[in-house]
């Protein structure tokens, strides 16, 4: 559905002064996948989206969207993708209805008025259809911009910071709508700084800083970076238990934190019963057991730190 092979974009600021915005991007996103594209400011995320939506041409490499090749079938690509740009970019003096009608006509949508009406209803904007877009709240503007990106029913959607600057309620509404779009089988390329959002919405995540540093499902990234860890909450802690647990085959590391024992291992389902039995046999009052779940933010920061990106920027 979306594929990139060694996609590269270098901006020449002055002669001999080049800025590599995107370097050797290799990516394959399947139909119906929600792909999170994460990276710090200036990482080249918007440049990537612009290349994949045929707004700017790559310096080298190739990319295909919906089977159409970037740089060769640009008009077809633009006909088949929906783009939510970083700024809503609405015509503020024009009504919501007129804003959408312009785009429906540019996409040559059949029964344009009906389609506009459908999306205004769907996003709860029908009662404000005749009001100028400039009078809308940030959340309403964003919803209108999302409707605009969907009018021609594209199978691939590129969303650049869809919840940026929105209040929590508006952000929740937009997120639910993205979830619905994902459920409809549309391919979604989501650029975001909101890591909880990416964790919740995306099947896979790419961490990007001019080049793709890591790409996998959030669960696999967690495991890859931190391995799996289980926390045993106890009424009281005996430091001797650390050594005992460490002798069990398959245990990677053991840490004592307050009244808890944190055990790193590859196979919690196989080892947890053994550890629980050992602790109980040695007089431990086990309160409860749970897997330690690192946030996507931890993964993101750890990945960038390992790559020297954060250190470089500090």
């Amino acid at each position: 559905m979306i594929e990139a092979k060694a996609l590269t974009k270098i901006f020449e600021i002055k002669k001999g002064d080049d800025i590599p915005a995107v370097v050797d991007l290799n990516l394959s996103i399947a139909q119906g996948e929600v792909f999170g594209f994460l990276g710090p400011n200036g990482a080249g995320k918007t440049t990537t989206v612009r290349m994949l939506t045929s707004l700017i041409g790559p310096t080298s490499g190739q990319a295909w969207v919906n089977g159409f090749e970037v740089g060769k079938e640009d008009q077809e690509i633009r006909r088949n993708v929906g783009v939510l740009t970083e700024h809503p970019g609405l015509y503020e003096r024009l009504s919501a209805f007129k804003n959408l009608m312009i785009y429906a006509n540019l996409h040559d949508v059949e029964s344009a008025e009906k389609q506009v009406e459908k999306y205004l209803h769907m996003l709860g904007l029908w009662s404000r259809r005749d009001d100028p877009a400039g009078s809308f709240s940030k959340g309403m503007r964003q919803k209108l911009a999302i409707a605009r990106a969907l009018l021609h029913e594209p199978q691939a959607l590129f969303l650049d910071e869809p919840t940026s600057g929105l209040d929590p309620e508006a952000a929740r509404l937009v997120r639910s709508f993205i979830e619905e779009l994902g459920d409809q089988g549309r391919t979604i390329f989501l650029c975001t700084h909101n890591l909880n959002e990416a964790d919740r919405l995306c099947n896979r995540i790419g961490i990007f800083k001019s080049r793709l540093i890591a790409v996998d499902t959030p669960a696999n990234l967690r495991q890859e970076i931190y391995g799996r860890k289980v926390v045993f909450h106890l009424r009281a802690l005996d430091p001797a238990w650390k050594k005992l647990i460490g002798t069990i085959e398959g245990v990677r590391d053991v840490q004592l934190v307050d009244q808890k024992i944190v055990v790193g291992m590859e196979d919690p389902e196989g080892l947890n019963p053994k550890i629980i039995r050992l602790l109980v046999e040695n007089g431990a009052d086990l309160l409860f057991v749970g897997e330690l779940r690192h946030s996507l933010e931890d993964i993101y920061l750890q990945t960038l730190e390992e790559e020297g990106v954060i250190k470089d920027e500090l």
Binding site: R78, H87, R148
Partner: peptide, 12 residues
């Protein structure tokens, strides 16, 4: 108003 980019993203 940044409205050129969405316009340029259409098939025009």
């Amino acid at each position: 108003t940044h409205s050129l980019e969405p316009l340029l993203a259409t098939p025009i």
